[in-house]
């Protein structure tokens, strides 16, 4: 019952880099409306220690300060956000993903779950093909995490992002139980669900601090205590509960999509084995 979570790397920054090739391999940040805060960072910008949500004036001041100390400051390109472009690129990515599996749940602008059951190839092979197709067709790099449940797919995706040795695709099924434990133990819950600080805090109160704790926790208990925030079955870590592998359909984005093209297409015309 493998589920894949496909997630675009540094989505807004990557979209900008596709159309401004000179920014490839450079530190790029995308700012929120009115250029207030950093809402996306390229890998190089992350390496400079720029935080998500950090006000841009602070980033600028800090980097200028560093520049005076060390001679040459790192160059950062800051861009205003262009949500029309990101929405268009997101639609492209989601449609490409829909070609790989008829069962898709678009989770956010840059993430989608795919059920990989009943496909003729091993999930890892499909994951690699998803990655190379999205990269070639749209120019956007993605990571693929594969696990028996949505929660574990999300964790696998986190691992694939962190460690380049996975080459962008991490299938937990290839690991034995001990290895999974070793990898999940140091991962804080809040880091996997980015921005979910309140969620992380609440889970922390239950003694769930790391991804491994989350995996061990009985899902019923989590639901009881954090039901408000887990309304969309974010966390059903063990796979005992059907809701964690059932993908939510109709999907969230459906209302925003024009009728005629969109999720309906995936059901009608599944092309599970795309060879581009």
């Amino acid at each position: 019952m493998p589920v894949a979570l496909v997630d675009c790397n540094s989505f807004y920054a990557s979209c900008e880099q596709v159309f401004q090739p000179r920014l490839q391999g450079r530190a790029v940040v995308v700012l929120s409306n009115n250029d207030g805060c950093v809402v996306a960072r390229s890998r190089e910008a992350k390496a400079l220690g720029i935080k998500m949500g950090e006000p841009w004036f602070q980033v600028r001041r800090r980097l200028q300060g560093q520049g005076q100390g060390q001679g040459q400051a790192e160059e950062v390109t800051a861009l205003s956000s262009n949500y029309a472009l990101y929405a268009d690129m997101s639609n492209r990515v989601m449609r490409i993903l829909g070609r790989f599996s008829p069962r898709q749940e678009v989770y956010s602008i840059d993430e989608s779950f795919l059920e990989l059951d009943g496909l003729p190839e091993p999930p890892e092979v499909i994951g690699q093909r998803i990655r190379s197709t999205v990269l070639r067709w749209t120019g956007l790099p993605v990571c693929v995490g594969i696990g028996p449940t949505k929660t574990l797919a999300k964790l696998a995706n986190h691992l694939a992002k962190q460690d380049p040795a996975w080459a962008g695709v991490c299938d937990l099924a290839v690991l034995d139980a001990g290895e999974v434990k070793r990898l999940l133990a140091p991962v804080p819950v809040g880091e996997v669900w980015g921005g979910g600080q309140r969620l992380a805090h609440r889970l922390g109160a239950l003694g769930i601090l790391t991804a491994l704790d989350l995996r061990r926790a009985p899902s019923k208990r989590i639901r009881q205590h954090a039901s408000v925030m887990l309304g969309r079955n974010r966390l059903e870590p063990r796979g005992a509960d059907r809701s964690d592998h059932q993908l939510h359909q109709p999907r969230r984005r459906e209302a925003a999509r024009p009728a005629g093209r969109g999720c309906g297409d995936h059901g009608r015309d599944p092309q599970p084995c795309l060879s581009p």
């Binding site: 159309f19 390109t77 205003s80």
Partner: peptide
């Protein structure tokens, strides 16, 4: 630091072409 901030520039629409990068 030679950084560049670009002011908000709403995507222009060209008739029939949809969103413009």
């Amino acid at each position: 630091m030679p950084e560049r901030v670009i002011r908000p520039n709403p995507a222009r629409l060209e008739p029939g072409l949809g969103v413009i990068a």
